[in-house]
Design a binder for these strands. Sequence first.
DNA 1: GCCAACGTTGGC
DNA 2: GCCAACGTTGGC
Length: 145
Amino acid sequence: MNYWLVKSEPDVYGWDHFVKQGRAVWDGVRNYQARNNLKAMQAGDEVLFYHSVTKPGVVGLARVCKTAYPDPTVADDPAQQKFGWVVVELEPIMPFEQPVALARIKAEPMLANIGLIKQSRLSVMPIRPDEFELILKMAHANVAL
DNA sequence: GCCAACGTTGGC
DNA sequence: GCCAACGTTGGC
């Protein structure tokens, strides 16, 4: 089991929209490192859902329900296909009773090396098990790991 | 609205 | 291959 964090701007695609749909095709990733992270995801991996820009913070927990396949939004664009962009599919598990604001993450010494802070522009990143567990605690999420 | 970080593009 | 210019992300 691996743990991840994905970012989305709530005004573009927020947690509520995600829950309403019940499943998300995670498309639009156009960065090699983020793409490689998508490719490394396995079915059942747990994913922190992060709202960027407005009220930045982790708002809920999701899981990978379908592993990487070619991004259908560039299926008709040969110029884009050479990049090998992919999507995964995610489904919501639960919202956080107490969302974990970025400010709280920054204030937590044990999270000083989290990718979210170290590589602030990366939109799909791995999270260490200890970091993941701590964020769930901070969210008051009682979930079996 | 501003700015820092950083990835990409294109000239040389 | 280097580097300046430029665009995008995302926090504040």
